[in-house]
Design a protein around this nucleic acid. Structure first.
Length: 593
RNA sequence: CGCGGGGUGGAGCAGUGGUAGCUCGUCAGGCUCAUAACCUGAAGGUCGUGCGUUCGAAUCGUACCCCCGCAACCA
């Protein structure tokens, strides 16, 4: 039976456009790892969706004069379109507003309540008497007690930078209506993380070797500091409601005095999406227009295969702002269920990708529209550049200058050139057709080592090559390096063999060498599939062989498993990539200033 | 002492005790099948600063300087 691999990709908030930073931070890395595992024949389930609830959505809705549902619709649709365009290969991309999600959230809530990890508590929150409702911090403004700046948020003064405690803000008023607000006691449910600390300790210790060092350290820092109970409900309408009827069947000690207006907090609910989406996918027959849906032959439809089998592997991908939620909170929620759930094995976090040295910022109009750049330059050029610059350990930087240099000097000059010079040669000298008895085993060209090393980096598993190097994987940038190095070796081989001379001296020998190169290109077409799927397809089409098509249980990755080409009949030759015009591309920089 | 990360040739990075590496750029040479692409070679770094440990430190300790992320309702 094939290995079960769950790829949980952080759920993007639907309050704004996805920019290149999001792609590099977690969307693309997740897709690369998912595609890699599919190539190995694993039963991969990559799930995610739009995170639809919470104040960021309502704030955006207010700004646009729309209802939250409308904002969700607009961005969910845009995101779907973008992800399809980039070939992000989700098995299910859904959203948190589905009935199924709500059911699963309720189920988990009740289970945690019954297991005594959820308890009641009282906190203070701003309350508008006139509007008769509690207000989230973002909806309250007043005067900063330190610098007397007016119209400041209740949590932090933008003017002097000070963090404010509840109640410090002078003359707080509702941002919506301007009516006066006061702090008022409000009863909520809390998740008791203190109780989970010993288990979380064990969890971190067990996964030390699986996470990048800085990720582990950061999580460890949080845990060392001590976790506190954390509110999982709030007074906010645009959220999933509580399963009140069910709660009322419980003991009175588990019930709030007043359930009016109480809803589930988004941080508690959104991560449950990984589970609810898995279950939804298992039950669905086919996708709907508001989802991305994919099911391969041979995939299991039993959700417990991914969530409860001890040999299943769970990955989570996210930006660094999500680290604590995925490294501690979500595992804590799962532990509290006490029901045999597998915990995420790889918590894969990247830092931020900056844009020309500065943070991407929508409000300051400092951003690259993912859709526009892909339309202009092609999805794979963007995927290439981002994948080569992933902020795996420190912040990355997107610069147009670097983009041009990377594409022209590395991708085009190395891989593009190897493919083009080899195929053109075969086309010109042999009308695109060659057949040989067998290809030569050549040390320099042996790519089995590359397959192994790339696997090591992508899966984080140290195998035969060098254990030290593979610690704290997955390492996508290093894996890509290996592939480009193999491509470079092809160029060296072409030169060393002096193919253009050899053809005059020994035509058969030249054919063998060319066939070696064809096989190398074929291997590269497979190796590159997780990174540049369009390019992989293009290579296979040029070679006139089947494009990569993954199947559960069939390992197309392992070098010894895929076929060796002894004959070839090329399709019409085109360039894999076109060089970029530096002047045109660098003009982008001025446009965004 | 809030938590965490980083400071290595022009740029971006790898390297955690034993002659400082990679990609790009630069310079020189070679080749001509290839998108002025490819191949070979060279130049270029006192590894943020001081002190210390050690036979020996980019790598360990310590003090300091600088940059950055997070800090629980900006997931």
């Amino acid at each position: 039976m094939s290995k079960k691999v769950l790829i949980g990709v952080a759920w993007p908030y639907v309050n704004g456009d996805i920019h290149v930073g999001h792609l590099g931070g977690y969307l693309l890395p997740a897709d690369i790892i998912a595609r890699f595992h599919r190539l190995r024949g694993d039963d991969v389930l990559m799930v995610s969706g739009s995170d639809c609830y919470g104040t960021p959505i309502t704030v955006e809705a207010d700004k646009k004069g729309l209802r939250p549902e409308e904002v969700v619709d607009i961005y969910h649709k845009k995101d779907l379109e973008l992800f399809r365009m980039y070939g992000l290969d989700y098995n299910l991309y859904t959203k948190t507003t589905t009935q199924k999600h709500k059911e699963v959230v309720h189920e988990l809530f009740l289970k945690l309540l019954d297991n005594d990890y959820i308890e009641k508590g009282v906190m203070q929150q701003y309350y508008s008497i006139d509007d008769k409702q509690f207000l989230p911090d973002r909806y309250v403004e007043g005067t900063c007690p330190y610098c007397n700046a007016s119209n400041q948020r209740s949590d932090q003064c933008e003017s002097c930078g000070r963090w404010l405690k509840d109640g410090e803000l002078i003359d707080p008023v509702s941002k919506l209506t301007g009516s006066k607000v006061t702090l008022k006691d409000t009863e909520h449910y809390f998740l008791n993380f203190e109780k989970l600390e010993p288990q979380l300790r064990e969890y971190l210790d067990a996964n030390k070797g699986n996470w990048k060092k800085w990720v582990w350290n950061e999580a460890n820092g949080w845990l060392k500091e001590g976790l506190q109970r954390r509110a999982i409900t709030r007074d906010m309408d645009w959220s999933i409601d509580l399963p009140i009827e069910e709660i009322k069947k419980r003991d009175e000690s588990k019930q709030l005095k007043d359930f009016t207006g109480k809803h589930i907090y988004v941080w508690f609910e959104a991560v449950i999406g990984y589970l609810s989406a898995t279950r939804a996918w298992c039950e669905m027959e086919e996708g709907t227009p508001d989802t991305i849906f994919k099911r391969e032959d041979g995939q299991s439809r039993n959700w417990e295969d991914w969530w409860k089998r001890p040999d299943s592997v769970i990955y989570n991908f996210m930006g660094q702002d999500n680290l604590v939620f995925h490294a501690l909170m979500w595992p804590g929620q799962l532990m509290g269920l006490n029901d045999g759930y597998q915990l995420p094995k790889y918590v894969v976090v990247n830092k931020f990708l900056n844009y020309e040295g500065k943070k991407f910022s929508k409000s300051r109009n400092w951003t690259i529209d993912s859709k526009v750049i892909a339309e202009k330059y092609g999805v794979d050029l963007v995927r290439y550049y981002i994948a080569r610059n992933l902020p795996e350990n420190k912040e990355g930087n997107f610069t147009w200058e670097d983009f041009v240099a990377s594409v022209n000097n590395e991708l085009v000059a190395n891989l593009g050139n190897l493919v083009n010079r080899t195929l053109t040669f075969i086309q010109n000298k042999f009308s695109g057709e060659i057949e040989v008895e067998q290809i030569l085993p050549t040390g320099a060209l042996s790519s089995s080592m590359t397959f192994e090393r790339v696997s090591g980096y992508l899966s984080g598993f140290a195998n035969a090559v060098d254990e030290e190097e593979f610690q704290n994987g997955p390492w996508i940038v290093k894996a890509f390096d290996e592939i480009m190095e193999l491509s470079r070796k092809g160029n060296v081989y072409f030169d060393q063999m002096k193919v253009w001379q050899m053809i005059k001296e020994d035509e058969n020998e030249a054919k063998v060498i060319l066939m070696n190169l064809v096989n190398l290109i074929y291997d590269l077409g497979i190796l590159i599939y997780p990174f540049l799927p369009e390019t992989s397809n293009k290579i296979m089409k040029l070679l006139n062989v089947d494009v990569v098509s993954t199947k559960v249980g069939s390992d197309l990755w392992t070098n010894s498993n895929h076929k060796v080409l002894n004959e070839i009949k090329l399709a019409e030759i085109e360039l894999l990539f076109n060089k970029l015009d530096p002047e045109k591309v660098l003009a982008e920089k001025d446009n965004s200033d």
